[in-house]
Design a protein around this nucleic acid. Structure first.
Length: 635
RNA sequence: GCGCCCGUAGCUCAGCUGGAUAGAGCAGCAGACUUCUAAUCUGCAGGCCGCAGGUUCGAAUCCUGCCGGGCGUGCCA
């Protein structure tokens, strides 16, 4: 009796006039989250108001990408110069792509190109001699104020060395830009939607959700820093089986509180047993938080809810309580959301129906064994996929497709989904369906991350989701702190399986790489303060050209890479580039600090070094900000 | 079986849109604090880049086939 579908699709009508949705439940969740979907009920409108808008999206903070055109990067400059040279060769194809990169070894210069090597077969000449010609022509046209030398080396590389004035100009720009340094405009004028977390409100966030949240939040930051107008969105399923079982779980606990209810013994997957109230669902949620929600309901309503068959009060109470918990956890991690979207609104707005109609019109669905199928075999899958179950209830995939159509219609140029590896089989269906329905599936980009395994002293931590005796994301933050948690999730590529050793994280938090970065920042703050206390000062027109020490030059070069690093990280959806780069910055600063004094030097040099230290602090601060990690003034 | 991810130093991982002598952190060994934060720095040691073929002037990187681990392959989400 408790087990009624919220959404029943009649297949009889599906085959002829398109499916109809009988929505038995009209009393929508009372959640404070207002929907982004409700305002897009009209599918014919392909363009939605700019983000925020009448949807009244809920936010607790956002970063809006402010565009700040940087001075043309050296890479771009040399790219142009090289292109001009290549145009003087007849046989070079127009679409030949010039590659410029920073060599691994400093003796190979600051930038290098393999152009001659790659042209050897095309031009039928040996790479060395092509390189000589290219280098010679470049030398004749390149601005000596920017490029000090153009040399041929190795098998035929052309290596470039920066003129020192270029470095000093760059450093001055960096300082002038301050907390804007690093921002670029590749995404200017474009809108991006990043969907992440998207955990259903059935329990506390897990460590896996944490990886998702931190990855998504940081990718959103990166896009904002590269000029995109970014919206951060959380989607959850509140209309399906999961929430029903959740409500049933709460109800069973509530009944046990309100009256004497017989218990029964339930056997779990791992063979252990647990005593539950008689009416507790077979696949119910066993966590203590369910009991607490039931207790709160009982405190408020007494036994009054015993008489109703309606699950709504239980579901609503659970959803509200759990979402409050989830938001609290996300806040601790400084994970920001602009908007929430839910499944129920998609039904209410007719969007699920519209998808089924559209797919039907496209002829990619059929009815069999009482279910409605999507012909995924035509997209290269082994089997077709069920869209609507025999019970008349759509599978999660169907509203998922509908949700993505609403994203497209809201006019985003780029849509990123952050999914756990367990979703990799599902998202191709969504993309293919979008394509069939006439949406631009190419604008959707999926970031898949591998699972997190908690390890203690080399041994995997045994966790049972069923029992809810797992270490939650909150627990993890309690143990190692928000900064370490974020950093750990960000320092490795999403594609690699993450072994999170709790013992190591607790014991060695002092040795944790995140402290290395924070320490460098704090140290700079202290150095600058101390220098000022003893009477040194610096201002914007300090002469930077006195910075000629090897470590000073190396540090400047490292700092100037920052905008490009952020851009690479954003383009590749690879947040882990940033911690890796920042470690190099911190190292370069420490080496500078080790070799170069401020206090005790003559005033001009001291001022210039203070400016350089300030620049390093700026890059560390900005980088940590992108990562959502604090940059303390002292440690 | 099929699909996707992973396999690099003792450990955890970068590097993978092909480039020059394969890197970092931790662990190990040896050094550096009367000096602006030693949570730091310097040096040493540590590698058939899972295996075998192939493509290329050049392969950790691309292709094929194996081996090993993970995740999928639900009318669960």
């Amino acid at each position: 009796m408790l087990c009624r579908s919220s959404h029943t699709i009649s297949l009889r009508s599906a085959s002829s006039h398109g499916v109809g949705i009988r929505d038995i439940r009209n009393d929508r969740s009372l959640l404070a989250k207002r929907s982004v979907i409700a305002s897009h009920k009209n599918p014919s409108k392909r363009r939605a108001p700019r983000f925020g808008g009448p949807s009244g999206s809920v936010a607790w903070g956002r970063i809006v990408g402010r565009s700040h055109p940087p001075r043309p990067a050296m890479k771009d400059y040399l790219h142009t110069q090289l292109r001009r040279v290549l145009d003087t060769f007849d046989a070079v194809p127009d679409d030949f792509e010039i590659e410029l990169e920073a060599p691994a070894r400093p003796e190979h210069g600051d930038l290098a190109t393999n152009t001659a090597l790659r042209l050897a077969s095309v031009l039928g000449d040996n790479p060395r001699s092509i390189a000589e010609t290219v280098a010679e022509r470049l030398r004749a046209q390149v601005d000596p104020g920017r490029i000090k030398s153009v040399e041929v080396a190795g098998p035929g590389f052309v290596n470039f060395r920066y003129a020192q004035d270029y470095l000093f100009d760059g450093l001055a720009d960096l300082l002038a830009e301050g907390d804007m340094f690093g921002r670029t405009d590749a995404g200017a004028g474009q809108r991006a939607l990043v969907e992440y977390v998207s955990a259903n409100p059935t329990g506390p966030l897990t460590v896996g959700h944490g990886r998702n949240a931190v990855l998504g939040d940081t990718i959103a930051n990166l896009l904002a820093w590269t000029g995109y107008d970014v919206t951060r969105e959380y989607y959850y399923n509140d209309a399906g089986r999961q929430m029903r079982v959740l409500a049933q779980s709460v109800r069973a606990r509530y009944e046990a509180l309100a009256s004497d209810v017989p218990t029964r013994t339930m056997t779990l997957d791992d063979g252990t047993t647990v005593e539950v109230p008689e009416n507790f669902p077979e696949d119910g949620y066993l966590g203590q938080y369910i009991v607490e929600i039931a207790e709160a309901l009982h405190d408020e309503h007494g036994d009054a809810l015993l008489s109703t068959d309606d699950l709504t009060p239980f579901r609503t109470a659970a959803e509200e309580a759990i979402f409050a918990d989830i938001e609290q956890t996300l806040r601790r991690l400084d994970v920001k959301m602009d908007a929430f979207a839910n499944e129920q609104d998609l039904y209410d707005a007719g969007r699920v129906q519209a998808v089924l109609d559209g797919l039907d019109e496209a002829g990619v669905t059929y009815e069999d064994e009482g279910a409605l199928w999507l012909r995924t075999t035509e997209f290269g899958k082994e089997d077709d996929t069920v869209l609507v179950k025999q019970s008349g209830e759509p599978t999660y995939r169907t509203p998922d497709i509908a949700y993505h159509t609403t994203k497209s219609e809201r006019g985003y140029d780029l849509m990123i989904d952050v999914f756990g590896a367990d979703h990799h089989a599902a998202y191709p269906d969504v993309l293919n369906a979008l394509d069939v329905l006439g949406y631009d599936a190419d604008a959707v980009d999926i970031v898949l991350y591998q699972f997190v395994t908690l390890v203690r002293g080399g041994e995997p931590v045994k966790m049972s989701t069923r029992r809810a005796n797992y270490i939650t994301l909150d627990d993890l933050i309690d143990q190692v702190g928000a900064d370490v948690t974020r950093f750990f999730f960000l320092m490795r590529s999403p594609g690699t399986h993450l072994n999170f050793d709790l013992e190591l994280a607790e014991e060695e938090s002092k040795e944790n790489p995140v402290f290395y970065l924070q320490y460098a920042h704090a140290r700079i703050c202290s150095i600058l303060d101390t220098a000022e206390e003893v009477g040194f000062s610096h201002d914007a027109d300090a002469d930077l050209s006195v910075l000629t020490h090897e470590e000073e030059i190396a540090l400047i070069k490292e700092l100037l890479r920052f905008p490009q690093e952020l851009q690479n990280a954003a383009e590749n959806r690879a947040p882990h580039f940033v911690p890796n780069y920042l470690r190099d910055v911190a190292t370069a600063f420490s080496q500078f600090y080790d070799n170069c004094q401020i206090i005790g030097e003559e005033e001009e040099l001291a001022s210039a070094r203070m400016r350089l230290a300030l620049a390093a602090k700026t890059v560390l601060k900005n980088g940590l900000t992108v990562l959502g990690i604090s940059a303390p003034r002292q440690m």
